[in-house]
């Protein structure tokens, strides 16, 4: 098991009582409730623990049935995963190497997956839980809202600071977790260091709302809560810390690349998937200031620079 950092403890809420184990769990992902069923009590117990902030008792939008097997060693699975790809045929899908296979039924909103236990085990560093969450979310959105999800998953670290969320977006290894670790309790509250849900601007007459997700990054996800978005920083590592406005076209393109593609059961064709992402990015760019943030991993400078922006409304940029 990959050792989790000490800072993680600061993100964890109180433990819930998991002694009364049920065979299913309801998982909240934004406006979606995903019911997970699993034939393995040990795994279900671990999932209940990892997702304890996101367990809900609500009418499920999608049912995911997991039938887990233990045919292969963890190292063998990791080896296969690196070159694995997914094959779809009608309402069935499987990974090459036969690590998992499954089928879905849109009428009953059910996805059945048979796969190796290690792929779902939170203790295994190469598990596919985050992909499962993402696909479950977008699948349920497609069933519930069609091609217009009310919120999209974005590759970003979120920091709640002065009542609003600062988003630090960027690809893997750009420094999202570093920023989360540079955030002490005095400086703000870390929502998530990997992926957040961002609402479309103006949904319910509000601005952009950020909702935390049960996505596991290097840190475990924090509270299951929402907050209004202040601004978006697109990260760039450098030997100094500084920000600049991005022109809208550049912001649109770069932000779009941080949106998690809407992969789902009954997958969209490529053009539809990119169109959904393009629409979302263009809506966000018109509503929210987007800056490029170079940073050199120095905490004091990072928060001083972000504080500079507190006095800037972004109105000039948005006009």
């Amino acid at each position: 098991m990959e050792k989790r950092p000490k800072e993680m403890k600061a993100l964890l809420p109180k433990r819930v009582n998991t002694t009364e184990l049920e065979s299913t769990l309801g998982l909240q992902i934004g406006s979606i409730c995903c019911e997970l069923r699993c034939n393995d009590p040990e795994i279900l117990r671990k999932l209940q623990d990892v997702y304890r902030n996101y367990l809900v008792d609500a009418e499920p939008d999608v049912f995911v049935e997991l039938e887990l097997t233990s045919r292969l060693s963890t190292s063998k699975i990791s080896s296969i995963l690196t070159r694995s790809r997914y094959i779809r045929h009608g309402n069935r899908f499987r990974s090459s190497g036969r690590l998992l296979q499954g089928q879905y039924d849109l009428d009953s909103r059910t996805v059945k997956i048979t796969g190796e236990k290690a792929l779902i085990d939170p203790d295994n560093s190469t598990n596919l839980l985050n992909q499962l969450i993402s696909v479950s979310y977008y699948s349920a959105c497609k069933m519930k809202y069609g091609t217009n999800p009310p919120a999209m998953l974005v590759h970003a670290c979120g920091i709640l600071r002065n009542g609003k969320i600062l988003i630090f977006a960027g690809p893997s290894n750009i420094g999202k977790t570093t920023i989360a670790r540079l955030c002490s309790d005095r400086q703000g509250e870390v929502f998530n260091d990997e992926i957040l849900l961002m609402s479309r601007p103006g949904v319910n007459g509000k601005g952009v709302i950020i909702q935390n997700t049960p996505i596991i990054g290097d840190l475990l996800p924090g509270r299951n809560t929402t907050a209004p978005l202040r601004c978006i920083f697109l990260l760039k590592q450098n030997n100094r810390t500084a920000w600049r406005y991005l022109d809208k076209a550049e912001a649109y393109l770069r932000f779009m690349r941080q949106i998690i593609g809407p992969s789902c059961v009954g997958n969209y064709d490529k053009k539809t998937a990119y169109s959904i992402m393009a629409d979302f990015s263009s809506e966000v760019v018109k509503s929210i200031p987007i800056y490029e943030l170079e940073f050199n991993r120095d905490s004091d400078t990072l928060w001083r620079v972000t504080d500079e922006l507190e006095g800037i409304t972004g109105a000039e940029y948005l006009n």
Binding site: K248, A249, Y252, K271, Y274, A278, S282, V285
Partner: peptide, 8 residues
């Protein structure tokens, strides 16, 4: 896929 973003 194309979108108008500002003048561009």
């Amino acid at each position: 896929i194309w979108r108008r973003i500002g003048d561009a």
